[in-house]
Design a protein around this nucleic acid. Structure first.
Ligand SMILES: [Mn+2]
Ligand SMILES: [Mn+2]
Ligand SMILES: [Mn+2]
Ligand SMILES: [Mn+2]
Lengths: 219, 219
DNA sequence: AATAAAATTTAGATTAGTCTAAATATCGAT
DNA sequence: ATCGATATTTAGACTAATCTAAATTTTATT
């Protein structure tokens, strides 16, 4: 009936990897993402294909079937709802919730996830600014721009990041650049785009590279 | 490092079964509890013994070591805290939380469970009235008597059950005999101990057998 | 079009957990 | 003390998921 923990992770990986080129996902790409070997991936692709969760052609690659897509999107929904719970209810920081959500997303109970969704007030975005699919698998979109695109004097609110690597999130925690914070661009270096920012009454510097990965809602 | 889901369930089963006679737990008792075969249990007992989580003597039985007891008690702590969350925060009923908690108890994160405990206000008892071990593994106790021991005219509050079988809990839901409810004994049949109760402004009958399994705090 | 490099699959082995059937040990009578 | 019933362990096999090494296919380059 239900899928194993491992099968679920493969489906999620394929969903994630089919984002960019919209084409077929390669064996090596999946192996890299799941830190496993190409041989193991091949075995699993055959199995998922047998269950009609992916379309798979030897040597060509894999793509999710509608059913596979439904399951994978449901996992993303669960992952992001749990991340909201961990941050909003339990007071954890956005750098420490991903690994825990990675476990929680495999808990099996429709009643549970719908109750959790209601308890959290049907959030549309997770702590990293990623959209939470609804029960039908539909995503919300919202206007957002990278902090790097703001000009001197402009102001906005931090609503997420493009890359949610732990080290980067911790770095932002230390700078106080967390979701909900208002930031104003004081100066922007014309040569290397380094920013001088004002947030929470304090001034700080931010590299142009970091600024590209912080998403802002213009206020 | 960490234990597998399966190993954890064996430790929890041994803890549960060592309750009554305080002696050794038999292979067949574990097999029955986990719905598996005696042969499988024997294999696992060897493995857990190898890891110094149980003391095991062939043909005699098993008992938890201090380390095994610590782990098993931690699982019970997690299970019961999650049950409180599901009932108190998500509004689920006490008959539908056990199976979900059975999954949630295996989530690995000390930070998570301590945050959850704080979020819930460090509860001492779960929705079924069972004590929640603290982080050091110590249980609370409280005065409680079976509803069957109340005499006519006596009043008390429902705080738990002795047997938490789903069908029984659903039955109590329908009668309105849920945690926190005040009940007064109107009459008690002298022959078969059937009770006539008043709770929430309504009168109802309850068998003597059911009354033995409902725990009451005398008010 | 031929060939070298890269990607992918296959073959064969390993580990965790499980099972059935057979062997062995313990327990409870007589 | 012996015998039969019961409990437990062992032997051997199976599935899911993984790996390494070898074989095969695709691709990129001459
Ligand atoms: Mn995440
Ligand atoms: Mn996220
Ligand atoms: Mn329970
Ligand atoms: Mn309980």
């Amino acid at each position: 009936m239900g899928l194993s923990y491992v099968e679920e992770n493969y489906l999620k990986a394929i969903l994630k990897l089919s984002g960019a080129p919209e084409g077929l996902v390669s064996t090596n790409a999946i192996a890299a993402r799941l830190s496993t070997t190409a041989a193991s991936v091949t075995d699993m692709l055959k199995k998922l294909s047998e269950k009609d969760l992916i379309h798979y052609t030897r040597y060509k690659g894999a793509a999710l079937t509608p059913e596979g897509q439904r399951i994978a999107t449901g996992l993303v929904r669960k992952h992001r709802l749990w991340e909201v719970f961990l941050v909003e209810s339990l007071g954890m920081t956005w750098d420490e919730v991903h690994d825990i959500a990675e476990q929680l997303e495999h808990i099996q109970s429709d009643r549970l996830i719908e109750s959790l969704d209601a308890f959290l007030g049907h959030p549309k975005f997770d702590p990293h600014g990623d959209p939470i699919p609804n029960a039908e698998g539909k995503y919300s979109v919202r206007a957002q721009v990278p902090l790097s695109s703001l000009t001197e004097g402009q102001e906005g609110t931090v609503i997420g990041v493009r890359e949610d690597e732990t080290a980067f999130l911790r770095h932002l925690n230390e700078k106080g650049l967390t979701p909900g914070r208002t930031v104003r661009v004081l100066t922007k270096d014309t040569y290397d785009n380094t920013l001088r920012l004002l947030t929470d009454g304090r001034e700080l510097n931010l590299s142009g590279k970091a600024a590209k990965n912080i998403m802002i809602k213009i206020s």
